Simulated assay, not measured.
Amino acid sequence: MTEPLTGTAGALHRDADRVLAAWSPSDAEQEALRTAYRSHLAAHPDGMWRECRAGHLTASALVIDPARERVLLTLHGKLRMWLQMGGHCERPDTMLASVALREATEESGIAGLRLLSGGPVALDRHRTPCAWHLDVQYAALAPADAVERISEESLELRWFGYREAGEIADGSVRRLIARTRARL
């Protein structure tokens, strides 16, 4: 479905392109992904929505504890993998960072999350059962009184130390943790 770039759909599409254009990748691999994401958006007016079978942008956030010593991961219900919180854009969304924050809040149950400044931490492109996900990855700090609450999308939520998380998570999550720690 090709949707005209007007209203909130257009606002989100423009915001995603603006975020990617302004973002400074950490290496050549991230620069290649940034270029691919922007090309995808230019070629697919519907590239923000799950209906775009050629792939679509998603947003996620790695939740970090207030002491900055642990991360909260979810055992994803469908994929059966330990991942950061994240997911699809929805029609009311107008900003990519808000998608990441909404998804992290919904999936962690933690109110008051705050995204780290500086925009996205990393990009990760991966195949899922629905299509290619062009994930824009952020990091979010939990407040001091954070209490997690499992959502229907998760089998389990658990705080992991950085090393422990690296032992149970896939390469994408390990890279996101390393890039987040470098920013902290």
Rank of each mutant, 00 (worst) to 15 (best):
183 R>H: 09
88 H>N: 14
64 I>P: 00
31 E>A: 11
37 Y>T: 10
173 V>R: 06
91 R>V: 15
10 G>M: 14
154 S>C: 07
32 A>F: 09
15 D>N: 12
34 R>C: 10
114 R>H: 05
65 D>P: 01
81 M>P: 00
118 G>F: 13
108 S>L: 03
184 L>S: 03
14 R>E: 14
171 G>N: 07
25 P>Q: 13
65 D>V: 05
156 E>D: 06
64 I>L: 13
100 A>I: 11
111 A>W: 03
13 H>D: 12
81 M>G: 07
125 R>W: 06
128 T>P: 03
70 R>L: 03
44 H>T: 08
137 Q>H: 06
6 T>L: 15
184 L>E: 13
16 A>D: 07
176 L>E: 03
96 L>N: 08
126 H>E: 14
149 R>K: 03
90 E>T: 09
33 L>S: 11
64 I>V: 15
142 A>G: 04
121 V>R: 04
37 Y>Q: 04
169 A>M: 04
168 I>C: 08
116 L>H: 06
25 P>G: 10
59 A>H: 04
122 A>F: 11
105 T>K: 03
113 L>M: 04
89 C>R: 03
158 R>M: 10
139 A>K: 02
30 Q>F: 13
29 E>A: 15
21 A>G: 10
86 G>W: 02
8 T>G: 07
94 T>L: 07
68 R>S: 14
175 R>F: 09
117 S>R: 02
52 C>L: 06
57 L>C: 11
181 R>M: 10
11 A>V: 01
3 E>R: 11
68 R>L: 15
52 C>F: 08
157 L>V: 00
93 D>Y: 09
146 A>I: 01
91 R>D: 13
42 A>W: 00
76 H>M: 10
145 D>V: 02
91 R>A: 13
72 L>I: 03
80 R>N: 14
58 T>A: 11
